[in-house]
Simulated scan of single mutants.
Amino acid sequence: MKHLYFLFMFFVSISVFSQHTFSIVAVDPNTGEIGSAGATCISAEDGALAISDIVLGVGAIHTQSFYLPANQNNARIRMEAGDSPQEIIDWLIANDAQGNPSQRQYGVVDLNNNNPRSAAFTGEDCFEEFLHITGPNYSIQGNILISEEVVTDMETAFLETEGTLADKLMAALQGAKRPGADSRCLDFGISSASAFLRVANPSDTDSSYGNLSLDLNVWITSEVFEPIDALQDAYDATLSTNNPQSTESNITLFPNPADKTVTLQSTGAMITSYTVADVNGKIVTQREIKSPQNVLYFDVLQYTDGIYFVETFENGTSISVERLVVSKK
């Protein structure tokens, strides 16, 4: 019953705290990429992802700690209007949607014509431990942490990792990973219950979830696992041409065989629903997607070992059927 209690606890946490935890926004002035990554101890599809807002060609904003969509929307409006990161934060503090900026935490970064700027804010009434750190092209922030080292270790990993912006963001999350990074997850021995990694490149035209060049999101749905490691697996799979099994329908399913979390990725059609059936044709999982996506995840921890068939749909039309092997030996 541990996993059932786990889910119940985090549904309660959403309604009571609406709290988000550790995250990073960053840009690469050399490539024009804009990135956003984070995690929280809320086990929901939009648990961590809710805070991520990328304004294409401009920058990224995270509004966290007692998250309010109104504050997030206002921050986007200010960025689109041309405000600097510090001006955006100053405006948010002066115009908090509930008149209570002392509970908020913000991180903002922009490209600024290849001269990036960043700013952050942490209100005195955020849950401890809390901290933010900024650099020329990044802002890292966290609250309700097991220790401030969650944030400082994120910065160290980000700065010391060579590679693409996505590599550095993924490394930052790994730097944060420890039991109780979000202190609410300590009793379960994991860092968080959902995590995301998003990177927009200059050719992207839609910043909504599932439409960026890199758009990964994982969350716990039943049995407990470490979301940052699952996110790492999904990220590694996007870098490899060996793991996915592709079909002419441009759907990839990986890893295969699978023992924990499976990624479904479409390079064309948007996935609006999927089913998983066993070898006898019995549907064991059926899910409608709230908002169409080209990347989604499901866990197979509750499945028995064997062969399954995953059928994906776009607006009721079948996109593909993929053969999946579940093996937990």
Rank of each mutant, 00 (worst) to 15 (best):
Leu4Ala: 01
Phe6His: 10
Phe6Asn: 03
Ser13Ala: 09
Phe17Glu: 04
Phe22Leu: 05
Val25Ala: 01
Val25Glu: 08
Ala26Asp: 07
Val27Tyr: 01
Pro29Phe: 03
Thr31His: 05
Gly32Arg: 06
Gly32Gln: 14
Gly32Val: 06
Gly35Lys: 04
Ser36Pro: 02
Ser36Tyr: 14
Ser36Phe: 14
Ala39Asp: 03
Ile42Gln: 14
Ser43Met: 11
Ala50Lys: 11
Ile54Cys: 01
Ile54Tyr: 05
Gly59Lys: 00
Gly59Ser: 03
His62Asp: 11
Ser65Glu: 00
Tyr67Thr: 08
Leu68Gly: 00
Ala70Leu: 07
Gln72Tyr: 04
Asn73Lys: 12
Met79Ile: 03
Gly82Ser: 00
Glu87Val: 04
Ile88Asn: 04
Ile93Asp: 02
Ile93Gly: 05
Gln105Met: 05
Val108Arg: 13
Val108Ala: 11
Asp110Val: 02
Asn112Cys: 13
Asn113Ala: 12
Asn114Thr: 15
Pro116Val: 08
Ser118Met: 07
Ala120Pro: 03
Glu124Arg: 15
Glu128Phe: 10
Leu131Ser: 10
Leu131Cys: 13
His132Val: 06
Gly135Trp: 08
Gly135Ser: 11
Ser139Pro: 03
Ser139His: 06
Gly142Leu: 01
Glu148Phe: 00
Thr152Val: 08
Met154Lys: 10
Ala157Ser: 12
Gly163Phe: 09
Leu165Asp: 04
Leu165Phe: 03
Lys168Glu: 13
Leu169Lys: 12
Ala172His: 15
Gln174Ser: 13
Gln174Cys: 07
Gln174Arg: 15
Gly175Ile: 04
Ala176Glu: 03
Lys177Leu: 01
Ser183Met: 12
Leu186Ile: 09
Asp187Lys: 15
Asp187Gly: 11
Phe188Met: 12
Phe188Gln: 15
Gly189Leu: 10
Gly189Arg: 11
Ala193Cys: 10
Asn201Trp: 04
Asp204Met: 08
Thr205Arg: 06
Thr205Lys: 07
Tyr209Met: 04
Leu214Gly: 01
Glu223Gly: 09
Phe225Met: 00
Phe225Asp: 02
Glu226Ala: 02
Glu226Asn: 02
Pro227Ser: 02
Gln232Phe: 12
Gln232Ile: 07
Asn243Gln: 13
Pro244Phe: 10
Ser246His: 12
Thr247Tyr: 14
Ile251Phe: 13
Leu253Ser: 08
Thr261Gln: 13
Leu264Trp: 12
Gln265Lys: 15
Gln265Glu: 14
Gly268Asp: 07
Ala269Glu: 14
Ile271Gly: 05
Thr272Asp: 04
Thr272Trp: 08
Ser273Cys: 07
Ser273Trp: 08
Tyr274Glu: 02
Tyr274Asn: 02
Thr275His: 07
Asp278Ala: 12
Val279Cys: 01
Val279Gly: 00
Asn280His: 11
Gly281Cys: 01
Gly281Met: 02
Val284Cys: 10
Glu288Asn: 12
Ile289Val: 06
Lys290Trp: 09
Ser291Ile: 12
Val295Ser: 14
Leu296Ala: 02
Tyr297Pro: 01
Phe298Arg: 09
Asp299Glu: 09
Val300Ile: 03
Leu301Ile: 06
Leu301Asn: 10
Thr304Tyr: 03
Tyr308Leu: 01
Phe309Val: 05
Phe309Gln: 00
Val310Pro: 02
Glu311Cys: 03
Thr312Ala: 00
Glu314Leu: 01
Ser318Asp: 00
Ser318Thr: 00
Val326Asn: 04
Ser327Asn: 15
Ser327Met: 08
Lys328Phe: 00
